[in-house]
Design a protein around this nucleic acid. Structure first.
Lengths: 193, 193
DNA sequence: ACCTGAACACCGTTCAAGT
DNA sequence: ACCTGAACACCGTTCAAGT
C-alpha cells in the first residue's frame, strides 16, 4: 500500500489533467496506462472501474474548490465589495485551479451523472453565500434568495456563453473593453446599491 | 434512392430521439441498427460515419428551431410583451419540440464539437432579436446589445440550473409559485419599463 | 500488496459479396 | 441502389498467474 509503482493518486492526477484537456470522454484507461507506462490490469487493482476513477477526480476538484471559494470570500467584510469580487475575480479570472481548465471542463458537462451531484452541492453552497450577502445589503430573506438565483443563473450562463460564443459575444470575454463595460453594466443592474 | 428499406431519414429520426433520451453518447450505430432491425453495414451506405449522422440530426433541429422562434416572436408587435414572451413561453414551457427533450439535450452539451457551431448561430440570431427589441424600447444600440447579452446569459444559466439543480432551486422550476415569483422578479429587473 | 498479460465483450468502421 | 455478414480495431473489464 505504501510502495506501489503507480499509486492511486497518480492515476487520479492523470485523470484530472485528462478531464481538463478533453472532458470526461478524454479519460481512457488504455491511454492513461500507456502514458504512465503501466498496464490496464494495474489500474483495476486501485479502482473498481473507470467510473470510480472519474468520481475520485471530481471529488478532488470539489474539495479544493470549496476551500478556495471560502477563503477568497471570507476576507472581504463589505457585502457589496464581496459581490463584485465574486463576479470580477471568480467569473473573469478563471478561478485559479491547481489543474488549469479543470473547473471549466467540469462546468462544461453539468449533466454528466458523476458531475451533476457535485455541481448541485457547489451550487447550493454558492447560492447560500450570495443570499447571505444580499441579506447583508438589506434585502428580505425571500428577495435575497431570488436575487441570488438570478445572479447565479447569469453567472452560469455567462461562463457558458464565453465557452461557446466568445468570439461572437465580445461582452463575455475574459478581457477587453467590451467585457469591462458589460461587467459594470451587469454589476450595476444585479447588485442593489 | 427512392425504395430503400431504411432510408436516411429513418436513421436521422432515430438519432434525434436517442439524443433527446440520453445525449450524444446515446447514439450508437449498433443500438440503432438493432432497434430498426437493420445491420450496421446498411448504416454506412447512407452515412460516412457516426459523426455524419449526428451532424444531420443536429442540423435538422436547428432548422425547425429557427422557424419556430421566428414564427413565435414575429406575431408580437409590442416590444415589452415580446420580451416577456421570450422568457415566459420559450424559457418555461420547454419550447414545443417536435422531438420532445431534443433542445434540452442539445443545450446540455454546448461544447460538443458538432453542437458548438450550431449553438453559435442560434445564439447570435437570438441576441439580434433581443437587441432589436431593446432598441424598440428606447435603448441605445450599445446598451441594447449589452442588455441582450445580460438577458440571454441569464436565460442560458436558468436552463442549466433547472436541469442540474431543479429540486434545490425551486425558483427555476418549470412551474410552481416560487418559479412564478422568480420570473416576475427577473423580468422586472432585466426588462426596462 | 501490487502488477502483468492474455482473454473477452462492445461497438465503430470497412469491404467483398449479394439482390 | 441498397443491404448483408464477416472481419478488424479500439478500449473497458476480468482474471489467473507472477513477484
Amino acid at each position: 500500500m505504501a510502495n506501489a509503482k503507480w499509486p492511486k493518486e497518480t492515476w487520479t492526477r492523470a485523470a484530472m489533467h485528462a478531464i481538463a484537456r478533453g472532458g470526461i470522454s478524454a479519460v481512457s484507461v488504455d491511454a492513461l496506462a500507456a502514458q504512465l507506462g503501466a498496464t490496464r490490469g494495474s489500474f483495476y487493482w486501485h479502482f473498481k472501474d473507470r467510473d470510480a476513477l472519474l468520481a475520485t477526480a471530481i471529488a478532488a476538484w470539489e474539495e479544493t474548490d470549496t476551500a478556495q471559494v471560502e477563503a477568497r470570500l471570507a476576507d472581504i467584510a463589505d457585502a457589496k465589495r464581496r459581490m463584485r469580487t465574486l463576479f470580477r475575480e471568480i467569473a473573469f479570472n478563471e478561478a485559479s485551479d491547481e489543474v488549469p481548465g479543470l473547473e471549466a471542463a467540469i462546468f462544461a458537462q453539468p449533466d454528466h451523472p458523476l458531475i451533476a451531484p457535485v455541481l448541485r452541492r457547489v451550487t447550493e453552497r454558492r447560492l447560500q453565500i450570495l443570499a447571505a450577502g444580499f441579506k447583508d445589503l438589506g434585502l428580505s430573506p425571500a428577495k435575497a434568495r431570488r436575487q441570488a438565483v438570478l445572479v447565479y443563473a447569469t453567472y452560469v450562463g455567462w461562463l457558458q456563453l464565453r465557452r461557446t460564443a466568445a468570439h461572437l459575444v465580445p461582452e463575455v470575454a475574459a478581457e477587453g473593453r467590451d467585457a469591462r463595460l458589460a461587467v459594470d453594466h451587469l454589476v450595476d443592474q444585479l447588485i442593489p446599491a
